[in-house]
Simulated assay, not measured.
Amino acid sequence: MSSSDIFIGETIGTALLILLGGGVCAAVTFKRSKAYEAGWVAIAFGWGFAVLTGAYLAGGVSGAHLNPAVTLGLAVEGGTEWSDVPVYLAGELLGAMIGAVLVWITYYGQFQAHLTDPEIVGQAGGDKKPASDEPGPVLGIFSTAPEIRNAAQNMATEIIATFVLVIAILTQGLNDDGNGLGPLGALITALVVVGIGLSLGGPTGYAINPVRDLGPRIVHSLLPLPNKGSSDWTYAWVPVAGPLIGGAIAGGVYNIAFA
């Protein structure tokens, strides 16, 4: 496949992934949403279906990595050329940012209502208004955060969860060329993502994808959202570094144990 195929496929596929994944987070978060407080199970399945949609769309174009950890794991395993890695990463990051913007457009009215609600941000004399250096009430729509802030544990959680994802892709989900997801692999991967969310997502929100976290976090920092608080950049390195390490380990383990 050409560099343009890779870039276009990864951009569009990742944009859809983040649109649907971020969309379910928004649907569950906003008081003025029909899915308000639908819960963690809805989020886990929403992200699984988001992966399924993006992977089916991009699978025949770019191999549907949609995730730098997957790209790195495939490069270590040997299915993806190292020279193609920067093209994959560029498309994935751009697509993640586009997807986050589309979530904002889709839920624009809900963002405005939520972030000006006195019960949410403590306006009109309340005491809940987020400080500019504290994460605000909608950051969770864009990016992940740990329930307990412990860098070592948070990093370990992301490494383990991403290892599960990438090793499952390498052993069960590759297309005939070995450089991305096939149709059955897309379904398997979506189900694995649901399983990771339900089983391993509790501590950190299971980024398991650097651009899933970084791209929307950048968009959060740039959007003109009232009372949005900080984008929590002190934590942002964990959901980038952890998945990359987990993906690389999975590629190495595959070469040792399965190749």
Score class of each variant (00 low, 15 high):
Val87Thr: 10
Leu115Gln: 12
Thr29Met: 12
Gly125Arg: 12
Met1Phe: 15
His65Met: 13
Ala124Pro: 10
Gly201Ile: 05
Pro243Phe: 01
Ala124Asp: 15
Asp117Glu: 10
Leu214Pro: 01
Phe49Leu: 14
Leu16Asp: 02
Asp127Met: 11
Asp133Ala: 09
Thr189Lys: 03
Leu198Asp: 07
Val219Phe: 03
Thr144Ile: 10
Pro118Ser: 03
Leu94Gly: 08
Leu115Cys: 12
His114Ser: 12
Gly23Thr: 10
Glu158Lys: 04
Val103Gly: 01
Glu158Gln: 09
Ser199Gly: 08
Ala64Met: 12
Val211Met: 11
Pro130Trp: 06
Ala58Ile: 00
Ile6Gln: 03
Leu223Met: 11
Ile98Glu: 06
Gly182Phe: 04
Val61Arg: 00
Ile167Pro: 00
Tyr235Cys: 02
Leu174Arg: 09
Gly242Ala: 10
Gly180Met: 01
Gly125Trp: 09
Thr234Gln: 12
Tyr107His: 08
Ile196His: 02
Pro137Gln: 03
Ala42Arg: 11
Asp232Val: 07
Ser83Asp: 15
Trp40Gly: 10
Asn227Ala: 12
Thr144Phe: 06
Thr189Gly: 08
Thr14Gly: 00
Leu165Asn: 00
Ala152Ser: 11
Ser33Met: 07
Thr11Lys: 01
Val24Glu: 00
Pro118Cys: 03
Gly247Thr: 05
Ile167Gly: 01
Glu37Thr: 13
Gly205Leu: 05
Ala257Gln: 11
Trp233Glu: 14
Pro183Gly: 07
Val101His: 05
Val87Asn: 04
Val101Asn: 05
Glu77His: 12
Leu223Ala: 06
Val238Gln: 04
Gly202Ala: 14
Val166Trp: 00
Leu19Glu: 11
Trp82Arg: 09
Leu222Trp: 14
Val121Tyr: 05
Ala26Ser: 02
Asn255Pro: 08
Gly48Thr: 08
Val240Cys: 13
Ile18Val: 14
Leu52Asn: 02
Ala124Met: 14
Leu174His: 06
Pro146His: 03
Ser4Ile: 15
Glu10His: 10
Leu191Lys: 05
Ala15Glu: 03
Gly185Pro: 02
Arg149Tyr: 13
Glu37Lys: 15
Gln110Met: 15
Asp5Gly: 11
Leu223Lys: 04
Lys31Gly: 13
Gly202Tyr: 13
Gly99Ile: 07
Leu184Asn: 15
His220Asp: 07
Val121Thr: 07
Ile18Asn: 00
Gly178Pro: 01
Thr29Gln: 09
Ala190Gly: 05
Ala241Lys: 02
Gly22His: 00
Ile141Gln: 05
Ala156Pro: 11
Pro216His: 06
Gln110Ala: 15
His65Phe: 09
Asn227Trp: 10
Pro243Asp: 02
Thr204Gln: 01
Ile18Lys: 00
Gly125Met: 11
Gly205Cys: 10
Tyr206Gln: 13
Phe258Cys: 05
Glu37Phe: 12
Gly59Lys: 00
Thr157Ala: 14
Gly195Pro: 05
Leu200Gln: 06
Gln153Pro: 07
Ala152Pro: 08
Ala55Ile: 11
Asp5Pro: 11
Gly229Leu: 10
Val87Gln: 05
Thr14Gln: 00
Phe258Met: 06
Ala69Met: 01
Asn150Trp: 02
Val24Cys: 04
Lys128Asp: 13
Asp5Ala: 14
